[in-house]
Structure formats: C-alpha cells, structure tokens
Amino acid sequence: MRVLVGVKRVVDYAVKVRVKPDKTGVITEGVQHSINPFDEIALEEAVKLKEKKAATEVVAFSMGGPKCQEVLRTALAKGADKAIHIEVPDADASKLEPLHVARALKKIIENDKFDAVFLGKQAIDDDANQTGSLIAGILDWPQALYASKVEPDGKYLKVTREIDGGLDTIKVSLPAVLSADLRLNEPRYATLPNIMKAKKKPLEKKSAKDLGIDVTPQTKVLEVSEPPVRQAGGFVDDVSALITKLKEKGFIKA
C-alpha cells in the first residue's frame, strides 16, 4: 500500500493570531508556522502502518508557498519516504481553497499510483474540513472521515470513527481517502538524527502551472476581524443577589 499524506503549513497552534490592520487576513509574517496538527496525526498513522509493514511507502504532499518545504522536511524527518511540493507564489498561497488542493492531489494520483490518501480532518487555520470529501468525490474513492482507529485488513481498511453518542466502525475498500481525528494517535517528535537524514530524502517540486491546475479563487474574503473583547465580569455575594442583578439587567423577567 502506498500512502499519500497531505501536510498543510499553518500558523502554529500556540501562536496568538493577530488580524492585519487592513483586515484582509491574519498576520503571518515573522510568525511561527508548523504542520497542521491533524495532518501530523494522519502522517503518524501512515508511518505506523509502514512500520507494521502494512504500507510500503509514505509520500508527503504540500501545496502552497515556497516555505511549505519546511513542513515537508519535518514530514520526512518523521518518517515519510519522499515529499512532493506543489508550489504556488506566496501571494496566491493564502487564496488556495480545498478544491484546488483536491485537484492537485488528483493530478498526482493520476501520474503515480497510490492506494490511499491520508489527511487531517481539517486545518486549524481555515477549519474548512472539505479537502477529504472533495478528493474522495473527485476520484470516486470511498471515504473514511474522522478516523480514531485504523486497522489494515487486506484490500480494506477497517476504520473506527467518533460520532455523536458513540463509535461508528466502517470498512472501506482500497483505494480510499481517510481523514484523521484528534485521538487517532500521538504523533512522535522528529528526532535530531532523523532531521539530519531527512535532508537527503527526495523532495520533488512542481508548480501548480506545470500540473495544469486551475487555482482561480471562488470565494472572496470581505473582512477578517478580531472576536469581540470580553468585558470584565463582576462578583455577587449569593444567589439572591445574582437574581436581583439579572432582573435589573433585564435578562430574566421580574
């Protein structure tokens, strides 16, 4: 089984994001970026399958500006065998949409045989949660989204998914698309020797143009704004004081 894993470069989860003064987006200049945490989980699962000999090769994929190579290098250090970077100019990177990424993935799969695409369930920057379903739709492959457990089973993957009120276990035939949920596994750290070795692993670079993918935006961001600042609260002595206050403010009927 050859697995293609999507890794998106996003603002690190620990960074307190700030909106640009012109409200066109958030500040990304000089800000720490990392692999989208859900993609890291997807990658870990693929690498684990390889360690269990259930997968033969793990290829990491990223679409975006030149700096995506950083996250691809990290993916290589964490166990991917090779990496593919679909480069778009920095100015266009923030306008990429899930559909563009799904189209790029389709091109790669057309050129080279893969048995599975692993992705994070969503990216923590736009929280779109669409790429997995889109690529499954475009390729007409079965999908197993929000995986919390994956068991290879010959030509199938048995996948447990967390759903409201319980667990849903499904079996999808390969090739298939899988998206990782938070509790699927705990990603490893890239060890320093592996970081150094990853420098020698192949990283292929193609431009969106080379692949002939249309990346014309379909949506337009009108405005990005900060969430309203929370007002400081006040303390009350007891329940009756609370009720009096609530009545005063008109939150409950007198």
């Binding site: 990304t28 200049e29 000089g30 800000v31 720490q32 970026h33 990392s34 700096k67 950083e70 290098r73 990290t74 250090a77 750290y189 890239a190 060890t191 320093l192 970081i195 150094m196 420098k199």
Partner: peptide, 26 residues
C-alpha cells in the same frame, strides 16, 4: 524569530531551526 526568515542567519541553517523546533515541541 525562528522559521519564516528569509535572510540567512549568521550561524544557523534550516537544519538548526528544525532541530530547535522539534526540541521546543518536546
């Protein structure tokens, strides 16, 4: 500032940066 710098650092390469990043995560 780690990552996102375009001017080369006087003694640190991308390799140093990656090592530092993995270590800070741990």
């Amino acid at each position: 500032v780690p990552s996102s710098r375009s001017i080369p650092h006087i003694i640190y390469s991308d390799g140093h940066r990656q090592i530092q990043k993995s270590l800070s995560q741990l």
